[in-house]
Nucleic acid binder design. Sequence first.
DNA 1: CTAGGGTTAG
Length: 522
Amino acid sequence: MASSMARIFSLPRSTTTTPISHLSLSKTRPFSTTTHDQLNLPSLHPSPDADQMSQLLLHHHNPYHPTESPLQLIGILLSPHLVHQTLIRLRNVSKIALSFFHWAKSQPNYRHDPAAYHLMIDALGKVRQFDVAWQLVIEMDNLKLKPSFATFGILTRRLISAGLTRQAIRAFDDMESFVEKETSRDEFRFLLDTLCKYGYVKVATEVFNERKSRFGVDVKMYTVLVYGWCKINRPKMAEKFFREMVDRGIEPNVVTYNVLLDGICRKSSLHPEERFERTIKDAEKVFDEMRERGIEPDVTSYSIVLHVYSRAHKPELCLDKLNMMKSRGICPTVVSYTSVVKCLCSCGRIEDAEELVNEMVGNGVSPTAGTYNCFFKEYRGRKDADRALNLYRKMRQESQQLPSVHTYNILVGMFVKLDRMEIVKEIWDDMKASGGGPDLDSYTLLIHSLCEKKKWKEACQFFVEMIERGLLPQKVTFETLYRGLIQSDMLRTWRRLKKKLEEESITFGSEFQNYHFKPYRR
DNA sequence: CTAGGGTTAG
């Protein structure tokens, strides 16, 4: 799988070093960072390109954005063409970033700090420009900026996320010739951890077995591997490594047990009641084993179980467990509370959920946007516009917890369906002002709803807008719009749209497959 | 970067 992915993504290598003369650096706005003023350095004047670049970079930093998913997760079918196009877009962004980086370096008395190099190396790694990234590492070394383990950590992470695990391991081995310090167990564990987090447990296990005698082993390392096998849904293998650890005389701790517990709970299906009961039984077994070893389950352990109850829509069991943990002297966190709130809301028990939020605030735990989103989802289901708006205004006024992009998306979806377009506009503007910006989901949601209402022209406007913001529409979005425009004889609008797509060299040919993705969570 | 938990879109 990994090799076929690599083939799909092996784009022609280009030297991204754009000559500085190609840049149009207007001197309109000063670059306002306090650090520059403090260090008495000349202020930088970014070009409009640089502004756009930073915006796009922000967009693509979003872990929920599909762009990175194909590079981070294996075993998912994505249209290679779509990925290719997206990568080209990202590539352009990193080109601008690199030009800016070089330009800044050429300013008198200005010198990038290692952090700047790290950002640049990270951005380049994202678009698989590893040759240029390596150049920067060498440049750091030449400038006596001392590439550190942080530098190699970033490079390694990007290599792994691109599926280039062998190169990542080589980079790890090369590290010692750059970094004065000898590679320690912590750093080796980071390599294993990153491999596991991106799903390459087999590679991690291989590397672990090869070098465990050199670095030595500890609980944390085994925990990483147990996590990895759980992540790819191989609980048996997770169990095997767990036992291996115990056999070696290494005592598992709370974290190890929680990783195992999460492995049992997270992926298990709860649909027929028996499966739910079996999962709970297995979870209880872990709890018992913990206590036998004299390890008290902590907040995380309980939060994992609360999540299962919440997924299974068992409000009573949720509340019981919550009370149980409190009686054992364990203070619930936002995470624990949010699971219960979600459960109560999804079971229609809004008042109880509200009461629980009051309780958590009383206990000094502040709700997050996600906590409130549970309420918004329920209000959306009930079409209760008034309560939704009340809560929304309350959130914005108290600014204790600002709405998240998800909050805006839920509300936009709700009010478009209710045909309250003036409110949609208000929320949309708020979202833009918040800086989290409309994301791919926001646009997709809005455009699809507008299409449903046959508001083709408006839908078209947003379609063009999202492209201009550097977001690549999904194939379905394009098709829906295309059909609508042709059917309602809006050929002029259609031609305008087509021109836009040509300008941006975006194509939605028949070779495109529908794709599904699940975001990788960092 | 440095072993673990929640919210979410279709």
